[in-house]
Design a binder for these strands. Structure first.
Lengths: 198, 198, 198, 198
DNA sequence: AATGAATGAGTATTCATTCAT
DNA sequence: GATGAATGAATACTCATTCAT
């Protein structure tokens, strides 16, 4: 008798996850072009053909990961809409991201994936979306900063310029983590936000 | 009549420079894997074969550019040994780098090249050297910061951690420039260094 | 309770038939190379694995169909040995074949399969046999034509050459049906045989 | 010094011709799917990569050959517009085609290519064009036949149906040539056209 | 008997590199 | 020195076939 549907689904899901994990790690470390399907399948301990049972193509697989990254960014953007004061909101966000970069392998990989994508040409529709989502996040952060400035808690200066600097710091920190690995030392949250607050 | 030796050498040097410029720009924008020798030769207005008369291989050419980048970093590191005060030295350095990134020319390309390389695996010996040079630069900046702290001009905190943060900001800013292109807004130098000074 | 042996055999036979039908249709329409086992199993509403319980390989399955075609051709050849006059025999045969081609069912598919195979390289032993059977058919038709000529009913000319022309017309008509599909207009039987009879 | 432009062009053209000849022969014999680029390059005595310097893809190469076939068919269609009588025109055309099939390797291959294409799915735009060109040819032949009927020289019957039969015979003859190779015996022209003339 | 997940060999295509001129 | 035609190794992807259940 054949496997039950449930058994098949469980098998399938497990394989999918293995592929996702391997691909995220490799794309983040080596980029799209230098990562081969063989790399991915070897890392995931499966055959090359099996990757294609789960994803249409290398681009498809990459696109799915980018989609997940977009999802993450959107949830970050949503976290900006809160009852808390701008200062608290920003501090909380920065803390979360720095911690994520520092501790989680996965979060770190997503950051790197995004870092790479921002450097790459826009081949895929998902990349375009990722870029637009990022721009939106920058914009919303600028608005939050403006509110903080109106409350007299944030320093003066062009809010968008300040927003860009904040995310540049986050991104640079992720790069640094990638570069240094174990030797990485995460910055203090108040240092990261020092330029923002009076 | 054949050309004189001198004429040949001058021609040769000019070709080399054309290749360097084309390759730097392309590697910086598209990365090592996505840049083809044909891309480079077309951009340099020469034949593909001619590239191989000047460089052993694509890796060789890339390695030479990395060497140049190492050279640049070293000159930056040397600029830290100066008569000026730590605060002035740091400010001057940051100003130079931010301007370099913003101005989108050769300097900018080197930054991007380095940005990419730090994310890549260490395939070439020159990359290893670049990374080590970078680490040395971080170390020297940490020492400068420590001096500044001893003078009471810099804020307290682990000097190495602060040094890393400073370069993370520079790196992240270069990424941001890459991402936004024309829409990029460079940060104010005092915002970049705000976390450092009292 | 397990099924009885008889039930199993009946099921098995039904499955075999489904595979045959699906495969014949697909091979006839798309050829051997472009037809996948998945195509066949999907068309037959069974799993891919099940095909292999009934046939050793794709080639095996193809070979069996070719064998069936050989069988059909042989029965055509046998129909040439009859009491009826050569003219009647030929007319009857042509009518049957044209009708078969036109009616677009199983017979039509066999014609197309044979049409394809005659163009293909001889990969399988069955194909060789098919070709030899065809040659034998041509020969027997030539003999029939010769008899017709002796009776003064058929036109003069090399009997083998005339036989070839007759089957070329049949073959070309099958091609035409394939090409035109619904828009196909079958030729009149007397037009097809016009060159043969006085 | 490099090769002169002229030398390069000659080299290029020679290579192109080698590829065309090899590809036509292979596509005609084995069809598109079963013909590999390696087959073609091996037959043409060149490397696989070189094929891609001359043609974008396997489809491109195939498309070019189909285009050539379309060109041939069009020139056949044009030959129908002539001062000569319908009977002479048809006879001349059939004679030319039968002779082409019988003697020339190349003509024979084009016929086979067309034969195959008519059986295949319409993947390429050129295939669609080929089919339409063929339909147009059938139509023009039907008109010629109608004129012949009005002159009382051709037998009665639906002109389009008669046109289809004529080309079915030609096509079937090409198939037969392919099938029999050296053993092929070409039909007499008057036998091929017997069904047409009174 | 039946299923479909998994495997891996084979094919189209790209591109670094070589070589005749 | 210079050219670009030619080579062939590497990679994405497909599909016949196997196998655990």
């Amino acid at each position: 008798m054949a496997r039950t549907k449930e058994q098949n689904e469980r098998l399938s899901l497990a394989t999918r996850e293995k592929i996702y994990t391997a691909a995220l790690s490799l794309f983040a470390q080596k980029g799209f072009a230098l990562t081969t399907i063989k790399d991915i399948s070897r890392t995931a301990n499966i055959s090359t053909g099996l990757v294609y049972r789960h994803f249409h193509s290398k681009e498809d697989l990459f696109g799915r990961l980018v989609e997940k990254a977009v999802h993450e960014i959107k949830s970050v953007a949503e976290s900006l809409h809160t009852e808390a004061s701008p200062k608290e909101t920003v501090t909380e966000l920065v803390k979360k991201m720095i911690t994520g970069i520092q501790s989680s392998e996965e979060v770190s990989h997503y950051f790197l994936l995004v870092a790479r994508i921002l450097l790459e040409d826009e081949g895929l529709p998902q990349i375009r979306e990722l870029k637009q989502t990022d721009l939106m996040l920058f914009q919303q952060m600028a608005e939050l900063i403006e509110r903080g400035q109106q409350q007299g808690v944030f320093r003066e200066g062009d809010p968008y310029q300040l927003s860009l600097l904040l995310f540049a710091i986050i991104q640079g920190t992720a790069d640094m983590k990638m570069f240094l690995g174990e030797k990485f030392v995460a910055p203090d949250v108040q240092d990261v936000t020092a330029f923002l607050f009076k």
